[in-house]
Design a binder for these strands. Structure first.
Lengths: 132, 132, 132, 132
DNA sequence: GTGGTCTAGACCACG
DNA sequence: GTGGTCTAGACCACC
């Protein structure tokens, strides 16, 4: 599982981990029933305090995206497609909301904002194709 | 000067203040050389401790956006328009970039993302008109 | 880390701390990535309030000389050597410039000024050796 | 009398005024028994609070450089040459002291410091001759 | 009147 | 354990 930590971003590490795991579940990078790395292993790999991993896992469990099997480990939960769609919509809305508020407060017009968004989509597209 | 504090957002009050003042300077809501509200007045109005306001002002001063005149008060600094435009562009690009990456990773199409952005713009518009 | 506070100098304590840490970074007394004393430890040692230390650290962080690692502590930031040299040269030039202007305005000859400078160097040298 | 105020230097305005008047007395820009501008006039000219001028004058009086003649105004005092030399030496020593301390703490060698001082002397010399 | 500094003490988030 | 935030209240320098 690919996970990257940015120590200088100001975003709590456990939230960075949560976000990345969540997205990998959304996009089927992590499949239903798949076993997650143990807290210890992941902590060692990311050079991070084990409690931090544990915290991220606990929250994901509370969200219902992950299930503990006692003595065995943590697994990606079976999540109904409805629920996935709902989460996806919430995530999208919240991030777009933030962007819109900032843009509006900066005095950026709707048209400009959309242009900027399209531009970033294209950039990502290009990068992605190159990688493939 | 319009300033709103959200005590439950988790974002430190002094940072909320910094962000809002910065943005008002960006959008010419606050003009060069204009006097800022006094620490005590603003503190009383927002019902927070004067030191919290002072902290926000101090950091803005360190950023070069605000200048002291001793015994008189604080004033918006002269910042070249080029520099302002540069900062504005950076802020917009960074926030749209984040939104775009998240959207793409969630498997959201460009069209959907734009629709969502438009929706948020409309919502803000509606809210704004009601206030007026 | 050697730090000395003069409570009677009129210079704010947090600025005295900032200046001394800045200079130790300049002169490699503090190396890149080195951990700084914790806020509480330094506060206890210097017998000042922890917030005073925290304030100094915060401003140094805003200057980019110091970085936080959450829950771990504060570290000297990676600053390119070029940049350090540049800052050092600016500091030296500005202080010598002030001294030269004052001396000239007082009608002090170049020779006299140099003599005075040498004297102060010697005094400092002597004091320093005694301490060792 | 030429006086320049820098509102952004951090140095208290009344001290800026004191320093400049003191130096003009030292260098005979202001002669013994010469009448100083009234508090009001100077305040109006420098666009500064009259109390600030008054404060500067009071301190200069306390230093013995200036004398009040009741109902008439302020005058440059007759200062014995010894006293002038003493003040001049003190001023020189204090400013060179500051420069030396900073230089030493930056790890600048005595030779380098002297070179820098010479350079600044030459620069000033050149500028000065051009003006004449 | 202005802002700045410092303290003591409480509370919180993060690891 | 780490640092960060906020408060209440005192004191100071400057204009």
């Amino acid at each position: 599982m690919l996970l990257e930590i940015d120590h200088h971003s100001g975003v709590p590490i456990y939230r960075q981990i949560m976000r990345q795991i969540r997205q990998q579940i959304m996009t089927d990078g992590l499949r239903h029933e798949e076993k997650l790395e143990t807290v210890r292993d992941l902590a060692a790999r990311l050079k991070v305090n084990p409690m931090t991993i544990s915290k991220a896992y606990s929250f994901l469990e509370a969200e219902g995206l992950v299930e503990r099997k006692r003595g065995v480990g943590l697994f990606v939960a079976k999540v109904p497609k409805d629920r996935l769609d709902q989460i996806r919509a919430e995530l999208l809305s919240s991030i777009i909301d933030k962007a819109a508020i900032t843009a509006i407060q900066l005095g950026v017009s709707e048209t400009e904002a959309i242009e900027s968004l399209k531009k970033h989509y294209k950039e990502y597209d290009t990068k992605n194709r190159r990688q493939k």
